[in-house]
Amino acid sequence: MRNKYVAFPYVGWMALFVVAPLIVVVVYALTTRDGSLTLDNFSSMLQYAPVFGRSFFLALLATAICILLGYPMAYYLSRERGWLRRMATMLIMLPMWMNFLLRTYSWVFLLERNGLFNSLLESFGLPKVNIIDTSGAVVLGMVYNFLPFMVLPIYSVIEKIDYRVIEAAQDLGANSAQVFRRVIFPLSLPGVLSGITMVFIPSVSTFVISRLLGGGKELLLGDLIEMQFLGSAYNPHLGSAISLVMMVIVLVCMGIMNRFGEGEEEAMLL
């Protein structure tokens, strides 16, 4: 029990930089410019419903693509041994050592009308494609930036699955598809769930990706909030209210999802 004192610095940190700012956000969300209490910031929220809808849709799409790409990769990685695995893990981590903004900017240069990708197509005599400044480019940016956060948790969970469980299933006559469906996949769900959390939340709140790759044509939640603090409309009260609503929706989503993760029966429903 004495050990609990070691957590004190972190508790202090959390209180100062997590709890206190949250209180400030709540206070801002419930007040107007002149400081009186109000719920107007929330009642005007309905007009932003399309923005909420689009942000959640694009983030869900990016998360789904990350699962489809990331799960097989993580599964394959956990089966490999030796240098190939070390190399692959390294390659997945490598882009994360670079600044997020730089990585996104480099996609701009790649996808630009006269960018590298289109120049290559042109030199093969193929027609140019317009990817930049579309919703597709935004999803691409999300998947690219956040894919490692899907692969790594799934990989570390599958890797820790006791191999004897799989052998037992095989001994009992399960074929490899059944082993995967009935044993490996359910046991890997905690990894998938934390992967979803780690991809979905940054995707739903991004504003850099949508501005650089989406051409600012489709407003996302992050853009909307940033606009209220540093953009053309200075209204931190509305910005705080939108942030709070977003936090609540995300927390509810995560809560529901985690309920599915609790029992194996329910997990199968996913």
Partner: peptide, 20 residues
């Protein structure tokens, strides 16, 4: 585990907002 995940997501959210 649920509380932990909630805390984690909360922290990430704050981190992202302050990150912006």
């Amino acid at each position: 585990k649920k509380t932990l995940a909630l805390m984690l997501s909360l922290m990430m959210l704050i981190g992202l907002l302050s990150g912006c």
